[in-house]
Write a protein that binds this DNA or RNA. Structure first.
Lengths: 237, 237
DNA sequence: CCTACCACCTGCAAC
DNA sequence: CGTTGCAGGTGGTAG
C-alpha cells in the first residue's frame, strides 16, 4: 500500500477518492480522504511526486474537537495534557514541531508548556494552519505519527454543522439568551462599521463588523455573533 | 533667548518633514510652552537653579501622538523606526537613554529593538513617565536633543480634548450615563485610569478606557461597552 | 497577590 | 501586489 492513512487503509484509496464530500461531518475512518490542498491555490509541482516518497505507515495518536478558543484570536491550540505528555517531546524553550498535512505540506508549530495554566499549547504557526484549513469550533484535528522516523502528521475534518459562530438567524434554536432585552439595529456607522444597540441592562453599544458577505458580526461574552445583513434581527422591532 | 522652544527651532531647522500632518490637536508651535512641572508635588529644591544651567539650544527630533497602547498596560512606547534609526544610538542589550523633561528632571528609559516585531521601543521607566505626565492616548510627546553635548529632551502636550479619564466633576456634562443608579467618586486611581463605582445591582467597579475618538469604553460581563462621542446613548435617558 | 518588565507574536493597514 | 511598520497582544519572570 502506499501513502495511507489511518483507518482508510482498510479501503482502497482510489475508491475513497471518488466519494469525497468536503466540509461534511463524516465517519472518522474517512478522515484521511484526499481533499483539496490546504488553503493553497498553487500546486506544489516540485513535490507532487517527491513527497510521496515520504509515505509511511502511520500510527494514530489522538484527535481533538476544536474549541472556539483553539480557532480564535488566542492563536493557540491547547493540547490535552495526557496526549501531549504521551506523544510529544518535552516542551522546552523554543520547541518546534513539524507536522505534515494530507498534501505533505509541512506545518511548524511552536509547542510549549504554559505554567500559568499548566497546559500544553501549540502557538506560533497554529493560526496560519487554522486559516488555511478553515478550521472552526467543532471541527476535529487528528494527529498521527509515522511508524518509523519520528515524523508527525496532522489532519482535520470539518464538522457537519459549522459552529464557527452563532448565527442570529437561528437564534430561536439557541439556548435562551442570558440577557433579556431587545436587540435593535441602528444606522450603519459608515466605512464598514455599524453600531447596534443591545437594549437591556446595561445598555451597550457594540461595534458591528460588516463582512463582505453582508453578514454582520460582533462579539458578546467572548462569542462571535453573526447575523445576516438582509434579514431583520430577531426581536429587533 | 532662554530655554527654548519649538517654533524657533522649527523655523531655523528646516521646513522639511513636509509638515506631515501632526495629527492635529494643536499647532506644533505650542508644544514647548511652559506648563506645570511634571506631575510632582514636591519642588526639586536642589536643582531649582542648578538645572537651569542645562539650558541649550535644542534641535527638534520628532513627535509622536500617543496611542492607547503607548500609555496603556503594555508599558512601552513604540518609537517609529525611521526616527529611532535616525536619532537614537543603536539599541543594544541594556541600552538606556536619559531624557530631561521641561523641569530638567531626568527620565531614564530602557531602549531596545524587538526583533520579532522589528520595532524600537522604550520600556523600563516609560510607564512611570506616562503616569507622572498624566499622558493619555492622543497626547503628543516630543523628543529633541541639545545642539551640543548629546543630551536628549522629552516634552509632551496634552490633547485639547482630554481623553485621559472621566472627570466626575463634569459628569453632568457627559451624555446620560447608561446605567441606572448613582455614580460615586472613589479615591483617585492615580494610575491614569479612573476607577469608578457604579452603584447598581450588583455593585461593580470598572476601569474606563478612553479611545482616541473620544469614545469611552469599559468592559462589563465581557462586553466592551462604549459611550460618549457625538451621539447620545440610545435608551440612556 | 499584584505590577512592571522582557522577549516573543500577529493581524492589518498603508506603502 | 507583496512587504513592513506598528498597534495591540501573549506567557514568563522578578520583585
Amino acid at each position: 500500500m502506499d501513502l495511507i492513512l489511518g483507518t482508510l487503509v482498510e479501503a482502497t484509496q482510489e475508491v475513497q477518492e471518488k466519494h469525497q464530500q468536503e466540509e461534511q461531518c463524516q465517519k472518522p475512518d474517512l478522515l484521511y480522504q484526499r481533499q483539496q490542498v490546504l488553503g493553497r491555490d498553487r500546486q506544489h509541482g516540485d513535490n507532487g511526486d517527491g513527497k510521496r516518497t515520504g509515505a509511511v505507515e502511520r500510527e494514530h495518536m489522538f484527535d481533538k474537537v476544536l474549541t472556539p478558543s483553539d480557532v480564535g484570536k488566542l492563536n493557540r491550540l491547547v493540547v490535552p495534557k495526557q496526549h501531549a505528555e504521551r506523544f510529544f517531546p518535552v516542551a522546552g524553550a523554543g520547541t518546534q514541531l513539524c507536522f505534515e498535512d494530507r498534501a505533505a505540506e509541512p506545518w511548524r508549530f511552536r509547542y510549549s508548556y504554559w505554567r500559568s495554566s499548566q497546559s500544553y499549547v501549540m502557538t506560533k504557526g497554529w493560526s496560519r494552519f487554522v486559516r488555511a484549513a478553515r478550521l472552526a469550533a467543532g471541527d476535529t484535528i487528528s494527529f498521527s505519527r509515522g511508524a518509523v522516523g519520528g515524523r508527525y502528521f496532522i489532519d482535520y475534518r470539518h464538522c457537519q454543522r459549522r459552529r464557527r459562530d452563532i448565527n442570529f438567524n437561528d437564534a430561536a434554536a439557541l439556548p435562551a439568551w442570558p440577557l433579556l432585552g431587545r436587540v435593535k439595529r441602528t444606522a450603519a456607522g459608515g466605512s464598514g462599521g455599524a453600531t447596534m444597540t443591545v437594549d437591556t441592562v446595561p445598555v451597550a453599544r457594540h461595534h458591528v463588523e460588516v463582512k463582505p458577505t453582508g453578514m454582520r458580526c460582533f462579539r458578546l461574552f467572548g462569542v462571535n455573533i453573526e447575523y445576516g445583513g438582509d434579514d431583520p434581527v430577531p426581536g429587533g422591532g
